[in-house]
Design a protein around this nucleic acid. Structure first.
Lengths: 274, 274
DNA sequence: AGAGCCGCTGAATCCTTTT
DNA sequence: CAAAAGGATTCAGCGGCTC
């Protein structure tokens, strides 16, 4: 067993009140997925604010994130659409940009896709969740907005890079340092864990995979051992798990729902033992 | 040689003036990619309107599309982002929805992506265009907004469908008709032709592949032989080529730039001969 | 509200081979 | 030849979301 100087603070309570007690410019990284206000059945959260109120509330907690974020910090905001409200991801973005943040990058979380291989055949990857509709196609996509204070935050693209297709590129340019890694681009294929495994373990209806948060941590290029990470909507703690896995020094999370909070704590403790 | 009762009208001139002469509710399908006003070096188009003017102009031509579109017609709007203006796709959308159109579906044109196969290994597909930046990752994505008058236009999802992963599904339900086809979802992987081939042939800086337009034609489920299709920003005529290939009965295109117009005509004629 | 959809699983069934 | 073991195929059912 290794001992690391890490601190994980999980707070049961409203993130808006909680964040107000954090010092200005103290956080390197925020990864979060807010309640969508789309009728998704959250446990206790009052999920029925009307549109304008919802966007106003969004601006409120985002403004707190802006305050606690360091000038070179990054805020990864995960937002998906819903058939009942396909505009929400766009409206949320324009509620925050350009007033509070710059949109430095837009990542696309691809859950399922069919691609043509170089051999010429089509392969489907990821879990395809069917919907029965004459007019809607299945939505296999969510946004990950990369928001920063000035739009000029340096990243380490190759930290979450992929192998070159043509290996000649490894020695072709100096920046590779001999490693077979190039930038991954902004399409992030991250399949869901299978339904059965999910339902057995967790009750949260809208959550992102641990590996998605891990990728956000990685691309910042900051050493996790010196990183302070914040998750205002902890949910069942996937950002916390990613922080633990990658060795993030300080993690602060808020969750207003008791059930989710308990689940997040349980999962984090489970990881501690293993 | 087969004779088909098709009519292809390519007009040299401004689409706004041109569309005003089209009858109301006469068009089944619009597929277009507007000038982005992002500093892309279009030949003669005055590409320096300021933001508000650009969006106002966008509303103008979109309103004409709304007028000429049939109640069950579809408008596929292709918009990409640019590092210099990452908000544009979102602003354009919210300039048109909900005032003029419903956003019925959002398709994502994926040009390049790295996926994990079911075998466990990572493969990269599509042409990856490198950019040299500390803060921006490569953008391998564009939006295709599916806009309709009322959001209730029926589609034929399986017309552009993909094969089942588990073949047991073919006979499991009646709707397949024995065919190995399911809905493709909203992530459309369509790789670019290679740069070399592009630059050799065509001068247009921002255009979508023929196969992208073909997919839009296909998913409407309308018989091409009875379809009227409109492309207000013809460019070098990729929508026209797709219309020709799929047998669209009537195609109307506008292009204000003489060079692009000539190129579009040349390409269409070339296809005629073959 | 009730049916439909599709990846995925695990149990059940069927066919083959070994003892 | 019967019985057991091993392998392959089939099939119901889950889950989430829409009409």
């Amino acid at each position: 067993m290794t001992t690391t100087a890490t601190s994980f603070e999980l707070h049961l309570g409203d993130c808006l009140t909680g964040m107000k007690q954090l010092p200005t410019s103290s956080v390197d990284l925020v990864v979060t997925s807010p309640p969508y206000n789309l009728g998704t059945s959250y446990s206790t959260y009052i999920d029925t604010l009307d549109r304008a109120d919802y966007l106003e509330w969004t601006r409120c907690w985002a403004a707190e994130i802006r305050r606690v974020l360091k000038p070179e910090g990054s805020f990864f905001l995960n937002v998906g659409a819903a058939p009942s409200n396909p505009l929400m991801p766009h409206q949320i973005l324009l509620a925050l940009v350009p007033d509070l943040f710059h949109l430095q990058n837009t990542f696309h979380w691809i859950k399922s896709i069919t691609v043509d291989t170089r051999d010429g055949d089509e392969i489907s990857v990821g879990h395809f969740k069917p919907i029965n509709s004459q007019r809607f196609v299945n939505d296999c996509h969510e946004f990950i907005y990369h928001l920063t204070p000035d739009g000029r935050v340096p990243l380490d693209r190759r930290a979450v890079g992929v192998a070159y297709v043509h290996k000649s590129n490894i020695t072709r340019w100096g920046h590779t340092g001999g490693q077979d890694k190039r930038c991954r681009g902004n399409n992030w294929f991250i399949p869901y864990e299978t339904i059965q495994r999910r339902s057995a373990e967790r009750p949260h209806p809208a959550t992102f995979p641990v590996s998605l948060a891990a990728r956000c941590i990685g691309i910042t290029g900051l050493p996790p051992s010196e990183m302070t990470m914040l998750e205002p909507f902890l949910g069942i703690g996937h950002a916390a798990l990613a922080a633990r896995q990658t060795g993030v020094a300080k993690f602060i999370g808020f969750e207003i729902d008791e059930q989710y909070f308990a689940e997040a704590e349980a999962r984090l403790n489970r990881t501690n033992d293993s």
